[in-house]
Design a protein around this nucleic acid. Structure first.
Lengths: 198, 198
DNA sequence: GTCTATACTCTGATAGAC
DNA sequence: GTCTATCAGAGTATAGAC
């Protein structure tokens, strides 16, 4: 039987591991750092997770489990332009609310996506292909401008995730006090409104 | 005296180190991998560079030395819209021609920019501030649309660097055969033309 | 369940022969 | 200049007491 304490400890460990993995990558992270951040001893970490890899896998699978949701929600029956702007906003909200998860993902891709290659080639690719067809329909029906659907999706990923993945740079340029995402929503709405209007 | 052979070996080592550092980050990279990629023994690497850090520093300083050039070239006396699109294209060309350098930079920022913080807070920040003023002038003179100058610059970074930093993902989604940047130029010209036209 | 102590591997760096 | 051999430290993981 799994107690409340066990659940709470697993949660604490994963939260600490997310801190460390997202900031240093898989190899750059050490169990010492994670133990320190979790307030537990190193062997105790390994009582809850079989290995460092197991922690990382747990984080990734938790992330991938919901990574597709924003794009999935793109409604074929909605207003095309509003739907796309709403999708962009859902992705931007993820960067605001879950920047560590975004950086964890970015680290994986930067390193050639060794641990999530299967996910990208199957689930993600299928979903993107499906939505690309939808975007093409919308474009040829004159409901949005003629744009390449794949680059349109990539652009939303690039622009929204940038605020999480490169937040260190943004903070250093804009002054560390304010919110790095300040004004991002208005700018991106303006950008996609102008891009998509037929 | 420095021989041709020494110069050539230093070059080989830096090239191999760029491969490894850009793919695995500083901590994730090992001297064994670099030695293997360079075709030299591990101690021989350390004959040419004092330490692993020294190799990394050499790569970063070489990179930062030219990192500002594309933005610097933004000409206050040119046509605003053409100048900005030309800037975007220079950045996109960097992603095409020097993807490893882009990933090296991305790795640094993801990890909080510990080694290039000074550069960002001084040189980069000053340049961005200077160009932001220029963009504001252009906007209030009605020569480009009213857009936030900082977010405009960030968007160019995000969109162009994405093609280098996330190329693994793009290749897996679009099919590994073709050039990940195929169609990117046309899409981005379309995007910025629509965004910037007053 | 949690800790101390420790085994064992990997990695950065050095010594010294050639 | 380049290599083989090796050291010292860090890092993951396990053993075993409590």
């Amino acid at each position: 039987m799994t107690t409340r304490i066990q659940k709470a400890n697993r949660k604490r460990i994963l939260d600490a591991a997310l801190d460390v993995f997202s900031a240093h990558g898989f190899r750059g992270a050490t169990l010492d750092q994670i133990a320190e951040a979790a307030g537990l001893s190193k062997p105790n970490l390994l009582y809850y997770f079989d290995s460092k890899e197991a922690m990382h896998r747990a984080l990734l699978s938790r992330l991938l489990d919901t990574w597709l949701d924003p794009l999935r929600m793109l409604d074929p029956d909605g207003d095309p332009q509003s739907e796309l702007i709403a999708y962009m906003r859902r992705k931007l909200a993820l960067s605001r609310d879950f920047p560590r998860e975004s950086r964890l993902f970015a680290n994986e891709i930067l390193q050639g996506a060794p641990r999530i290659e299967d996910f990208i080639r199957s689930d993600l690719r299928d979903l993107v292909d499906e939505k690309a067809i939808l975007l093409r329909h919308w474009a040829s029906a004159g409901r949005i401008a003629q744009v390449d659907p794949y680059h349109l999706i990539f652009s939303i990923w690039a622009l929204t995730q940038h605020y999480a993945d490169f937040s260190a740079q943004i903070a250093m340029i804009r002054g560390d006090g304010g919110d790095p995402l300040d004004g991002a929503d208005a700018f991106l709405v303006q950008l996609y409104t102008r891009l998509l209007t037929p």
